[in-house]
Design a protein around this nucleic acid. Structure first.
Length: 685
DNA sequence: AGCACGCCGACT
DNA sequence: GTCGGCGTGCTC
């Protein structure tokens, strides 16, 4: 019997690597991107329609009975075909279940099997319209307002606009030193697009940056409608912002990494701010890199993408060198004559006070005396990273992780910075009952205290996760610093990002030795970026800045190169090393992680089986490093191991991983082991 | 991710 | 004899 039936392919938010097929009745015609409620096992699931088709059922394809779509939840699709294509591409590229990818890109509120409220439906009701651009009399596109730009900024802007007219288009890397006015360039690039009714997506690494940047945009663009998407929003706020972007009403969309998936029917440009920043890569579940997906999205839409940073990632620099990216520099700080003076301070000959050398202390004293501000940067929270017994050598370590507990003085608690576990500080050594326990090393909390003791008359302000956890606390502290009264600022890498402190003229950086000695091949790149970013906080306007780098490895050649010649030669040297070892960007990597609650052996053995399987899949083009225990061997009661795969050919690596995943359910030793694939890994801990 | 099925230890 | 532990497998 020849019959036709209507079929739809649906993505459900479950760890499935396939789409599921459901039947539709003839009157149901959901477009791709529409949410549907579908029967799923014994339950129901919210799914997203990926495609529909009408097929003949005469063929003997009834290998199983299809179930029918239960309810169509949306009258209008939520995602457009372009976005669905991007998400399906991402699912393949990152080897992640397609439904999880798709639903991680939608606001969480849309996972509920409910139609949108009528209040929100208005954003869907009107078909997106694009205001017609008002053509200039001479037919040219509107030019940006270049008033108040420096010559260098004008040239930079001009270059970018020239490139954006060329085909094929290439991503643009805007390498501008701190304070050189990258935001000013973004604003001028965006301006003419808004007047043509277009939308622009700006991705920033962290929420901490968003209010300031948003304010800057708001001031520049006046009442241009904006949507802001970041982790601090409630479900309702997020959905509303998302729908405003989706409707085309919000012209400027600013958000953190997941905002790269925001639908925007009139998207005309993407800006990635702080391109090098590691927080652009998601570090759990669907491990995507927002920068790389932004490049893909811009390429698919054939729109410009601009990536700005003071410290380009090695990948970006390499792409610039090989002309895959256009490259433009901003080397000047408007209103400042000199770059900060960078100085390496050997800590070995000195007895440190508050972790600082006499020279550093003297520099702080002088800075305060001039009525200026000093910052001491230490990338470690808490009072002391170790609590130990001097009598028997006992250390306070985490029961759930292979790590020491950090002592927090104010709370008088021992805290694990890896799993979050907390406990009361013991009154005596649990082994030998010695009541005199000692701390070793220092974190920002101790630094704050000792600096306050050393400079009793000075105001000391600490900015780290612990001192800014309450709402408004960070803003209070930042505004204190912006008040420009002399003070000492103490903090972690929270301070390295974006903030502008006009009266800050001295930066002292402590304890970089670990990064210099690290086995992680990305550690030096990150250190270089961090040092340049932190150093960039020093000296603004008419006041020259000064940076002191304390280390017990003052002869480290790359540190010298960084300090002596600057970031770019330093990065070029690192690229040379990467080339020699075929590390990224001269090769492609995937990291397979495995963990077990039972033992390290189980995790290692499972990865060994994977390694053997990959050997049979592709022994010629894929190198396997490991399996080895992860640097943090145990975390939250799980033993962790990893296997690093690398290849000169991206396609071969991906094909092998695809084959591996097809065999995933037959891998020996998988019982009790959790495992995951990280494509283009940047974090190896 | 849930949920059911299934095969081994301590209970009314 | 059953209740329930979580290993394994499936979801159109």
């Amino acid at each position: 019997m020849n019959q036709e039936r209507h079929i739809t392919q649906v993505a459900v938010p479950r760890p499935l690597r396939t789409l599921l097929s459901y039947t539709l009745s003839t009157e149901q015609q959901p477009a791709p991107g529409t949410r549907v409620l579908v029967p799923f096992g014994k339950q129901y699931a919210v799914g997203l329609v990926m495609s529909t088709a009408t097929v003949a059922t005469d063929a003997a394809d009834n290998s199983f009975m299809l179930k029918a779509v239960e309810t169509i939840l949306d009258a209008t699709p939520l995602a457009d075909p372009h976005l669905l294509e991007l998400l399906q591409w991402a699912a393949r590229y990152y080897h992640h279940p397609v439904g999880e990818v798709i639903f991680s890109a939608l606001p969480g509120a849309l996972r509920k099997p409910k139609p949108l409220s009528s209040r929100l439906q208005k954003w869907l009701a009107a078909p997106p319209t694009c205001l017609a651009a008002e053509p200039n009399p001479d037919g040219n596109e509107r030019l940006p307002n270049t008033l108040l730009l420096t010559d260098e900024q004008q040239q930079c802007l001009h270059s970018i606009q020239q490139w954006n007219q060329q085909t094929p288009r290439r991503p643009i890397l805007l390498h501008g030193i701190t304070g050189s006015g990258k935001t000013e360039i973004y604003l001028r690039l965006i301006e003419p697009l808004f007047t043509a009714g277009k939308q622009v997506l700006v991705i920033v690494p962290e929420i901490g940056l968003t209010p300031q940047l948003l304010l800057r945009f708001a001031r520049f663009f006046g009442d241009t409608p904006m949507a802001c998407l970041h982790s601090g929003l409630s479900d309702g706020e997020r959905l509303k912002a998302w729908l405003q972007a989706r409707s085309g009403a919000a012209r400027l969309i600013i958000g953190t990494r997941s905002a790269i998936f925001t639908p925007a029917p009139h998207l005309a440009m993407i800006v990635i701010d702080e391109e090098h920043d590691a927080s652009l890569k998601q570090q759990e579940g669907f491990r995507y890199h927002a920068r790389d997906l932004a490049i893909k999205r811009a390429q698919m839409l054939d729109i410009p993408i601009v990536m700005g940073t003071a410290t380009p990632s090695l990948e970006a620099l390499y792409n610039a060198q090989t002309s895959r990216f256009h490259y433009v520099r901003l080397n000047q700080r408007p209103g400042t004559t000199r770059k900060p003076d960078l100085h390496i301070q050997d800590t070995r000959p000195f007895e440190l006070q508050a972790g600082l050398t006499p020279h550093s202390l003297q520099a702080i004293r002088q800075t305060l005396a001039r009525g200026e501000q000093a910052m001491v940067f230490l990338n470690r929270r808490g009072f002391a990273p170790t609590l130990f017994c001097p009598a028997c050598g006992w250390h306070a370590s985490c029961q759930h992780c292979s790590a020491n507990l950090t002592w927090h003085a104010r709370r008088n608690r021992l805290v694990c910075h890896h799993c979050g576990a907390e406990q009361a500080t013991p009154l005596q050594c649990p082994v030998c009952k010695n009541p005199k326990l000692t701390t070793q090393g220092q974190g920002t909390e101790r630094l704050e205290l000792t600096l306050q003791t050393t400079f009793p008359a000075a105001l000391v302000v600490r900015i780290d996760r612990d001192s800014t956890s309450r709402k408004g606390q960070l803003e209070d502290k930042l505004s204190t610093v912006r008040g420009n009264d002399p003070l000492i600022l103490v903090g972690t890498q929270m301070l390295a990002k974006g903030h502008d402190f006009p009266n800050l003229t001295l930066v002292v950086i402590l304890d970089i030795d670990q990064s210099l000695l690290s086995t992680d091949y990305r550690a030096l790149e990150r250190l270089g970026q961090l040092l340049v970013q932190v150093a960039g906080r020093a000296g603004r306007a008419d006041k020259p800045g000064r940076v002191i780098l304390q280390t017990s490895q003052p002869e480290h050649p790359l540190l010298h190169q960084l300090v002596g010649q600057g970031y770019t030669p330093f990065a070029r040297q690192l690229l040379e090393d990467r080339k020699r070892w075929h590390f990224p960007p001269f090769g492609y990597q995937a990291l397979i992680r495995a963990s077990s609650t039972a033992s390290m052996e189980k995790a290692l053995q499972f990865l060994e089986h994977i390694s053997q399987r990959l050997l049979t899949i592709d022994s010629a083009t894929i190198q396997r490093l490991g399996p080895i225990p992860a640097p943090l061997e145990k975390r939250a009661n799980r033993y962790r191991a990893q296997l690093l795969l690398s290849s000169q050919q991206r396609a071969a690596l991906h094909a092998a991983l695809h084959q591996l995943l097809q065999q995933a359910t037959t891998l020996p030793g998988r019982s009790g082991v959790r495992w995951s694939i990280d494509i283009d890994p940047i974090e190896f801990s």
